[in-house]
Structures are given as structure tokens and as C-alpha cells.
């Protein structure tokens, strides 16, 4: 979706402001929102691409005025409600009012280290051969799906060079809408600064994106 999350190249946000000696979390609720989001992925059975869409899919003004963990928390509430795991009534009451839905599994303290260490690899056994090889000129397709995609707007229609064939990876555009992993070849594609930004681009800079094969066409 062409949402406010797709920020590359926008103007007007001002300077980057690093915080000296920044703590990992800035409030107790951030810690709990972070941990709840991680822990609920097991009983919730959603995938990372669904989570990303739940975060980015909101009015631009709202997205830009929320803090990072406010967005995480709003997405968590949304996914829980969509799956009928909690209701608005229960959120308002702050207590469970209805019996729980059966869930596949929950995260136990004994499993935390194991689950984190395993993570969620997205590389799959290749079922096809890659259409492009390093050095190929490719154009990022012009496309505007209203659903989740990982092709940033600033790259669409631009020509780059395949720098590397990364592997055969889960395709987020499909995975986010529950249509299956549909793995595809993934490439690192490098675009010159001038190609992306015209006269304002830095000729001594480039931007690489990771692009799945359906995002690309020969140029």
C-alpha cells in the first residue's frame, strides 16, 4: 500500500536527532507492548508480513503522529480483534469476559531463549531458476497494490543493476494477505543516486534494495 510508512525520499521531517546513552525502552508500557507483540505471535498465528501490514495500514496523519510502540500496540489490538481473540468490550473492561478461543500454543518462559534463537527463517528450497544474474539491468515495476508490498515507491520505474542473487525467499506480498508463502527469487538491486533522485541525487552514492523477482522486469 502507498502508506505513510513508505518514507524514502520525503521532505520536511527535519534533522535526525540521536539521543545520547539511549535506553532500550523509554517507558514501562513500551516494554510490555513489545513483549506482548512477540509472545502473541505464537497463539495469534499471524506472520511478520501480516504484522507489518497491520502497522502501516492506517491514515497517514495517524501513522506519522504515533510513536513506534504506539503503532505496534495498535497493530496488536487490531490483529487480536480481527481473529476474535479479544473483543472491544474486554479491552474496555480490562478483563476477560468470554471464554478463550482454543490456540495452538503459547510462549512459555522455558521456550523464550529457544524461540528467539530459532527465529523465523524465510529462505525456502528453490523450485525455479533465477531469471536474473548479477550485472543484469533491471527496472523496478510500476505498481501500486493497495495491499502489503516491500517495493518502496522511490524505486518504482527506476533502472538498477542486480548486485547479488540472495536466495529463494517467502514473498511478503502474498504472505501478508494469507495467500501462502509463494517463495520467489530475491535480489539485491543497486540504483545510482542520480537515477533515483535526478539532479538532487548524489552521483557518488547508490541505494540497494532487496527486490523479489515479481517486482522486476528486464531493462
Amino acid at each position: 500500500m502507498n502508506g505513510a510508512h513508505d518514507l524514502g525520499g520525503m521532505h520536511g521531517f527535519g534533522r535526525v536527532e540521536p539521543e545520547p546513552d539511549e535506553p532500550v525502552f523509554h517507558a514501562d508500557w513500551e516494554k510490555r507492548a513489545f513483549a506482548l507483540t512477540l509472545a502473541m505471535a505464537l497463539p495469534g498465528q499471524w506472520n511478520i508480513d501480516m504484522s507489518r501490514f497491520a502497522r502501516e495500514n492506517r491514515p497517514p496523519g495517524e501513522y506519522l503522529s504515533m510513536s513506534y510502540y504506539q503503532i505496534w500496540f495498535a497493530a496488536l489490538e487490531r490483529m487480536l480483534k480481527e481473529r476474535g481473540l479479544v473483543s472491544d468490550e474486554e479491552i474496555a473492561a480490562g478483563h476477560s469476559l468470554y471464554p478463550p478461543k482454543p490456540v495452538a500454543r503459547i510462549l512459555s518462559p522455558a521456550d523464550v531463549a529457544k524461540v528467539l534463537y530459532r527465529g523465523g527463517p524465510t529462505e525456502r528450497e528453490p523450485r525455479t531458476t533465477p531469471a536474473f544474474k548479477p550485472g543484469d539491468r533491471v527496472r523496478a515495476k510500476v505498481m501500486n497494490p493497495p495491499t502489503h508490498t516491500r517495493l518502496p515507491r522511490y524505486a518504482r520505474g527506476r533502472v538498477g543493476i542486480v548486485a547479488r542473487v540472495i536466495g529463494f525467499h517467502v514473498f511478503p506480498d502474498s504472505n501478508a494477505i494469507g495467500a501462502g508463502e509463494d517463495p520467489q527469487w530475491l535480489y539485491a538491486v543497486r540504483f545510482d543516486g542520480r537515477e533515483l533522485w535526478g539532479p538532487q541525487g548524489d552521483p557518488r552514492s547508490s541505494v540497494s534494495i532487496d527486490a523479489w523477482e515479481p517486482y522486476l522486469e528486464p531493462a
Partner: peptide
Amino acid sequence: MQLRVRALETVLTEKGYVD
């Protein structure tokens, strides 16, 4: 936010979804 997050954590804990 503190209250909202605590409320949701309570609901999810009571339902047995999180430890």
C-alpha cells in the same frame, strides 16, 4: 498508554494466551 497496555495484558493473561 500505561493503562491501556496493562488492561490488554490482563485480558490476555486471564485468557491464558500469555504467561
